[in-house]
């Protein structure tokens, strides 16, 4: 069972919810926000294993290449260009699709591997925790996300900390998810991006619910939207200074007596929704 925590808008509290939810649920934690993973700042695990993530890219064998440019025409990602019968490779744009190798009649396209990121595994509070890290300057996060999610056991309970937004990175994370927790805040931006996230999650036909962070306790635009659209609110995190202080010190909210019940209630509500589906 993979529970994805996503948001649409960035900075609404995905990592706060997913780290605390992992501990409350006694579930594995998986940080798929590989461009800027930050769950380990709170979980502070001992890193026990590091695996490199490699991507394939074409290398032109100059002895075999006749400079016909078929590979350049076949590439959908502008990773190849032809200048004066020389083929130039822009490896960061390559999606490793193999089209250039397929169309080359002279066997001049070979593939090599380069490291684009890594996966770190460790233990924190007795839980198995993992994070993907995309190397600085690399434009494509999806290969790291896929390798990370292929390495986890779906028969176990896993909480997946998603990247923000509704990009390819989030879509590829949701492909592996059985339930979605959408974290938002009662602001216009929060609502706008929540709608996008809901639209995306609905396309996967998985059950989902909303968590409102920085909740002022009053009726607000998120509560109204959820009420009008029959969307389950799984929990709320109050807007107060104590929460912000614990967060900014990198502490786990669940270990604070005033905050523990917030996540216990979230766990109960998730279990309740999942028993219906």
């Amino acid at each position: 069972m993979n529970i994805a925590v996503l948001s649409g808008k960035g900075g609404t509290g995905k990592t706060t919810v997913s780290t605390n939810l992992s501990i409350a649920l006694n579930a594995n934690y998986v940080d798929c926000d590989v461009e800027e993973p930050n769950g380990f700042l709170f979980l502070k695990p001992n890193i026990e294993d590091v695996k490199e993530v490699e991507e394939e890219y074409p290398v032109i064998n100059k002895e075999k290449c006749v400079g016909c440019g078929m590979c350049v025409k076949a590439c959908n990602f502008n990773a190849l260009a032809k200048v004066k019968d020389n083929i130039l490779v822009f490896d960061k744009l390559c999606h490793s699709c193999g089209a250039c190798q397929y169309v080359c009649k002279f066997g001049a396209v070979e593939y090599a591997k380069r490291v684009i990121g890594k996966i770190e595994c460790g233990t924190s509070y007795g839980l198995s925790v993992k994070q993907g890290i995309l190397n600085i300057g690399e434009p494509m996060a999806v290969p790291v996300i896929k390798k990370l999610l292929n390495s986890i056991d779906r028969n176990e309970l896993n909480v997946i900390d998603c990247p923000p937004g509704t990009s390819c990175n989030v879509v590829n994370t949701l492909k592996y998810s059985d339930f979605a927790v959408l974290v938002t805040e009662p602001s216009n931006f929060g609502l706008h991006d929540l709608k996008l996230a809901i639209e995306l999650v609905k396309s996967f036909n998985i059950p989902f619910g909303v968590v409102i962070n920085k909740d002022n306790g009053e009726d607000n635009i998120i509560k109204k939207y959820c009420r009008d659209n029959s969307i389950k609110i799984l929990g709320t995190i109050p807007f107060n200074k104590k929460t912000a202080e614990l967060y900014s010190r990198g502490e786990i909210l669940y270990f604070d007596n005033q905050h523990k019940n917030i996540f216990d209630e979230l766990v109960n509500n998730i279990r309740e929704v999942l028993s219906w589906n």
Partner: peptide, 15 residues
């Protein structure tokens, strides 16, 4: 029109 590598596609065209 390209999703990525616009400069490369444009340069290739004028080359």
């Amino acid at each position: 029109k390209s999703g990525g590598g616009a400069g490369i596609a444009a340069a290739q065209q004028i080359i």
